[in-house]
Design a protein around this nucleic acid. Structure first.
Lengths: 139, 139
DNA sequence: CTTTGTGCAAACGATTTGCAGGATG
DNA sequence: CATCCTGCAAATCGTTTGCACAAAG
């Protein structure tokens, strides 16, 4: 049985990425959380105990991880880029009040028939973004 | 019958916005086009013949128009904010190759049942983003 | 050892803001 | 004529880049 740590190291290696403490920390942290942090949040959280990574390295690590297909960007607010280690297809819920973003399982909705888009376009995937109020903001 | 110009002026007035040449130009231009221009594209296009508006004014105009509900942002690329005068609900198609964005009519898809999101969330709207290749990029 | 990554600081680009003069209602 | 808008330039904020040193394979 492989530990969580080994799983992550193997994922990096399989994609041809060198396993550095910084990359490991970024990817491991992203995988361990449910929200979709920004670079600043990652930087802050990783360096809580003692310095693990610099800002520039987080940017370049994320870029490498993204190119490798281990991480994706989530864009729902202007000027705010968030990152998500869940690269399986899924949908998003966004709270109108607090801005919180939550993943929705792909199975939440019946399949959308994207063959119906305008003739001439070749559609290959899609995702649904749902807006509303999260639990806490309904108070 | 009211001219296009009067329609636009009335829309601005109804929202309590002063009708200035700059705001008029920004909103009229946005309504006249099908794509979703960035601020730079707007600035360039508006000032083709002779100066109509400054960069800062376009930013503030867009902000006012957006607050008034006449314009919305479209966020599909990191660091790129686009604007859309179509505030009726609709979906988007994004070309993976050239990045072009196209509106898809709301009626393109059967309704997505957003009552099925996790209990506790109060969903009130949604939109579908479809990815693929546009006509030209299939060549 | 060769190649790639890290960290710092400077560079960059998009957006915001302060302020003085100008236009709108 | 009181209020709000414009335009300029400076300030801000997120992200990228150049480079010297360090670490990975």
């Amino acid at each position: 049985m492989s530990s969580q740590k080994e799983t992550i190291m193997q994922a990096l290696k399989e994609k041809g990425l060198r396993v550095t403490p910084q990359r490991f920390a970024v990817y491991a942290n992203l995988r361990s959380r449910q929200d979709h942090p920004t670079v600043d949040q990652l930087l802050h959280d990783l360096n809580q105990e003692f310095p693990v990574s610099s800002q520039a390295t987080i940017y370049t690590s994320l870029q490498a991880l993204q190119t490798a297909g281990l991480v994706r960007e989530v864009l729902l607010e202007p000027g705010v880029t968030r990152y998500d280690a869940n690269v399986d297809r899924h949908h998003h819920f966004r709270c109108r009040r607090c801005g919180a973003i939550e993943d929705l399982p792909w199975t939440t909705f019946a399949a959308v028939d994207i063959r119906n888009v305008r003739a001439g376009l070749r559609a290959d995937s899609y995702e649904v973004t749902v807006y509303g109020m999260c639990d806490r903001c309904q108070a």
